[in-house]
Amino acid sequence: MPKLRKDPRAFKADEAKARAAAYQTELRRAAQEQAAKKAAEREARRPGCTGRGAKFTDTRWQAVEPKDWGATKDSHPHLCDTCKRAAVAAAQERQEPVRGEAGADDFRPAPERPVCTGCGAAFTEERWKATKRVGWTASPAKHPSLCGDCDQRFEDLNRAWGA
């Protein structure tokens, strides 16, 4: 019996199917490699607890991530849930307010007179008036956070160094 030859068009179709299957296999392999790479990068970014060194769980990581400007902040963003509970319990034993929670002194009105960032002394009446903002403009004083003495010392140092 004579051997039948395969039609060249069928042969080309089989080759095209094989190439398409190989291409799809290569695409799946590349997608798996990329997914593994992304997962490894995400794990490398995952924060760890400063207390025990353990990596944060996904829920803890999500809880300490900044959300928006008005969101309340986590009281211990550098600790895992277990260490945070221990820190909160220790703070409650000492009866100290946890950061982010209101304490007994948080409702005291803020002092009206500013203090110098250099020496901590309260501003004099003249200095306070000289550093007050006027409307939308900035304070007319060169160093509005310093008292008169510290401001003078700063200016003397600038002159001495030729700044």
Rank of each mutant, 00 (worst) to 15 (best):
Q34A: 03
R19I: 10
V88G: 05
A71R: 15
P97I: 11
G53R: 00
R85D: 08
G53W: 02
Q152D: 13
E126G: 12
Q34F: 03
A90N: 08
C116D: 06
T25G: 08
C49W: 01
H76G: 07
W128E: 10
W161V: 12
G48V: 13
F11D: 00
R52M: 03
E26R: 14
Q32R: 15
E43I: 01
E65N: 08
T117K: 08
L27D: 09
G103M: 12
D68C: 15
A91C: 05
R46V: 09
E65M: 15
A110H: 11
F154V: 08
A22Q: 12
C119I: 05
R94Q: 11
P47Y: 00
A102P: 01
W136M: 11
K67T: 13
E126D: 11
K142S: 10
Q152N: 12
A89M: 02
A104P: 15
E43P: 00
R60G: 10
E155T: 12
E125F: 07
K12P: 04
A141V: 07
Q95V: 05
D106F: 00
A110S: 09
R9P: 04
D106R: 01
G135W: 02
R159M: 14
M1S: 07
P111D: 06
L146H: 07
F123C: 05
K38A: 14
P8W: 03
C49G: 03
V64T: 15
R159I: 09
D58Y: 03
T50Q: 12
D7N: 05
A20Q: 13
T72Q: 09
Q62I: 10
G103N: 09
E125S: 07
E101H: 10
T82R: 07
Q152A: 14
C80R: 01
R5N: 09
G100Q: 00
R127D: 05
A54Q: 15
A30T: 09
Q62H: 03
C80V: 00
D68G: 15
P111Q: 09
L146W: 06
R133A: 13
T50N: 07
A110E: 13
A22K: 15
A160H: 01
A39D: 07
S139V: 00
D74F: 04
A104R: 15
W136S: 11
R45C: 08
E112I: 08
R94F: 01
R133K: 15
D7Y: 00
C147K: 11
K84S: 11
Q34Y: 07
T57M: 12
R153N: 06
L79D: 04
E15Y: 11
D74W: 04
P140M: 01
A40R: 13
R46Q: 12
A87R: 03
A89N: 03
K73H: 08
A21G: 02
F154D: 06
V115W: 13
A71K: 14
A104N: 09
